[in-house]
Every structure is written in C-alpha cells, then in structure tokens.
C-alpha cells in the first residue's frame, strides 16, 4: 500500500470509529477537557501502526479501544483506575435522590438558542465528571437511560436521578432567561 492509500484508509477508519471512540474515552476519562487530547493521541498511535503494518478490519474497533485504554492510563497515571470510580462520587448522599422520576422529565425546552445552549453546556462541563458524562451520552450520543447505565456501570435509577436533578438545576438557573 502506498502512503496515500494508507492515509485514505486511515481517514475512512477515523470517520467510522470516531463516535464510538469518543464515547469510550468520555466514559473512561475523569475530565471532559482531556477527551480531545486523548482522542488525538489514540488516533495518532493508530496511524503510526497503520504505516508499519496492516490491521484487520474486523478488529479495528477493539484495537482502537485498546490503544485508547493505554493512552488513558498513560494520561492519568497509575491511579487511573481509582480515579475513574471512587473519586467521582465520594459520597452518594451528594446526589439528591428523587424517589419517583417521571419518564417525561427530559425537558430542555427552554434552551432555544445557540447562546443559551452554549451557557448550558459550559455549566454542565463544570459539574462533576459523572454528571458531564451522563449529559454527554444522553444529549450528545442520544443513548437511552439503559444504555448509559451499561456504559457507566450504574443503575438505571441512578442515571435517571442524575439527569433529572441536573435538568431541574438547569431550569432553575437558565430557565428564567427566556421568560
């Protein structure tokens, strides 16, 4: 394969796997601000490997995730595993548990313009990493509650609660701007 052919192949793989890899990195990073760097490192490493040898197409997804995992470990150091779990929620009491969350709780209808959506997203990014992740997976990747629970190894009720609480907070904070 020539260099151009390799580049073309890389571009195709990149487009096909981008969303999946972003999801993986978001779910396993402890700071949403690190995601782009880790993503670039992952694909850069993959590019270097692709220059040297051929990679089997059916294994590319898993292969890329393996690289991403290594990059995450390298980025966060030996305490990476601890960080991704125990430091996110030191105390479960921090989440205000709502006993019953209605299924139609998802109402970001007050966000009607770009300026407000920017403010909302900036606000969310400053929240605890798990909240940011849930928000990203729900609104960015359109995952269901069940799928988010699987990705983050949480119960569905927990995911629901996080979303409901965050949305309530957003409505209280930004909902008045549209009034």
């Amino acid at each position: 394969m020539t260099v151009k052919e390799k580049q073309k192949q890389f571009e195709i793989i990149y487009k096909d796997t981008y969303e999946d890899i972003i999801k993986y990195i978001v779910c396993h990073s402890s700071n949403i601000g690190d995601v782009n760097d880790i993503l670039q490192e992952t694909y850069l490493e993959f590019y270097r490997i692709l220059e040297r040898k051929n990679v089997r197409e059916e294994k590319i997804g898993a292969f890329l995730k393996g690289i991403a995992k290594n990059k995450l470990k390298k980025h966060y150091g030996r305490f990476y595993k601890i960080r991704t779990y125990s430091l996110f929620f030191k105390n479960e009491q921090e989440i205000e548990w709502i006993e019953t969350v209605k299924d139609d709780f998802d109402t970001l209808d007050f966000v009607i313009n770009k300026e407000l959506s920017k403010k909302v997203w900036e606000y969310i990014k400053k929240k605890k990493p798990l909240i940011t992740k849930v928000f990203f997976l729900y609104y960015g990747l359109d995952l269901t509650i069940k799928e988010i629970a699987n990705e983050l190894n949480l119960s569905e009720s927990k995911v629901k609660n996080i979303l409901y609480r965050t949305l309530k907070e957003l409505r209280d904070t930004f909902g008045k701007e549209n009034e």
């Binding site: 571009e11 990149y14 487009k15 981008y18 972003i22 949403i32 995601v35 782009n36 993503l39 670039q40 694909y43 139609d104 998802d106 970001l108 209808d109 966000v111 009607i112 313009n113 770009k114 407000l116 959506s117 920017k118 909302v120 997203w121 928000f135 990203f136 729900y138 609104y139 960015g140 359109d142």
Partner: peptide, 21 residues
C-alpha cells in the same frame, strides 16, 4: 422523545471531528 438538537450541536462543537482530524 425528541431531544434538544441545539444542545447536541453545542456538545459536538467541542469534539469536532474535522478539527481533531
């Protein structure tokens, strides 16, 4: 339920595929 597309756009502006590429 239809989710807010503006939020989605804003989220993905931070993870722009072309920019990263």
């Amino acid at each position: 339920m239809k989710r807010n597309s503006k939020i989605k756009e804003e989220i993905w502006s931070d993870f722009d595929s072309s920019k990263n590429f």
